[in-house]
Write a protein that binds this DNA or RNA. Structure first.
Length: 277
DNA sequence: ATGGTTGCCGTGCAA
């Protein structure tokens, strides 16, 4: 899925990328390649795996993104928003009574509010009674749902991006039957994600421009001998927009070739272009 | 059905 457009894009549009880098310090060359390929105005990162004070701020500024909001802890999780333009009210949000660097938000100058999210992966056993990681994932989604629902207003221009660690549609996985009992595609998670999607009348930007049943993936396991040959992908990385922005969606692109870069992340960048009005 | 890789650190754990 190289990309799809609803119209010509313009310089006035907002182009926003989301990418789970699996260590920002290991992925600075990849970040430069993303900038060269998609020229995003804003980049949302997940799994930066670095303490906020050790984040490579200078390297990102040198790539053209001097405006940064960062949350992170040594060796785990970590999210960021990088922007060419000024960011206001940059904030980290903590859910499930843990400060663990899974959510940052900031406003662009024109009022658009951007979120970078890293939803807990949830472990292996899809049973919240037996697996505290899965319980954490469901609680994280429930708290987020309530928070966005409480802030709902018709004119809000919000962009929710990130590694949501759920592939909701059959078209988002390589084999629905094989994955329906695998964490990331189970009905209980998909239902929780649907409640989040309903909390603010979010539009799944990628699926607005590339409807099911066309397959779209953003993640391929490191464990495959040949990820492209096996093509056992999942669409875990998402860009959602509120109704005021959905009307202006212009293009989406998945940078599949990033999975073949030297020293790849297991996720590839997803970029969405939209009108700012 | 199992095991496969990566990144964190300097071992096993999370993904």
């Amino acid at each position: 899925m190289p990309g799809r457009s609803a119209r010509e894009t313009t310089i006035a549009d907002l182009r926003i990328s989301t990418w789970n880098v699996n260590s920002i310090r290991r992925r600075l060359d990849g970040l430069a390649a993303l900038v060269a390929a998609h020229a995003p105005d804003v980049i949302c990162l997940q799994e930066t795996k670095v303490a906020a004070e050790a984040f490579p701020r200078e390297a990102c500024a040198d790539l053209g993104y001097p405006h940064q909001v960062i949350a992170g802890f040594k060796g785990r999780n970590g999210v960021a928003i990088l922007a060419r333009e000024a960011l206001a009210d940059g904030t980290g949000h903590d859910w499930c009574d843990r400060a663990d660097g899974r959510h940052v938000a900031a406003r662009l100058g024109d009022g658009i509010e951007v979120h970078s999210l890293y939803v807990p992966a949830g472990g292996d056993e899809p049973d919240p009674e037996r697996n505290p990681r899965f319980a954490h994932k469901l609680r994280f989604l429930a708290e987020l749902t309530n928070w966005f629902a409480a802030r709902k207003a018709p004119l809000n221009r919000f962009v929710l991006t990130g590694d949501l660690n759920i592939a909701p549609l059959e078209a988002d996985v390589w084999n629905h039957a094989a994955l329906v009992k695998v964490v990331s595609h189970t009905p209980v998670e998909v239902a929780a994600l649907a409640r989040l999607e309903a909390s603010h009348d979010w539009t799944d930007a990628v699926r607005r421009l590339v409807p099911a049943p066309e397959k779209v993936y953003s993640w391929w396991s490191y464990r495959a001998r040949d990820w492209r040959l096996a093509n056992r992908g999942r669409r875990l990385d998402h860009v959602w927009v509120t109704p005021a922005l959905a009307e202006g969606l212009a293009a989406v692109a998945v940078l599949t070739e990033a999975r073949d870069w030297e020293g790849p992340s297991d996720h590839v960048p997803v970029t969405v272009t939209m009108a700012r009005s």
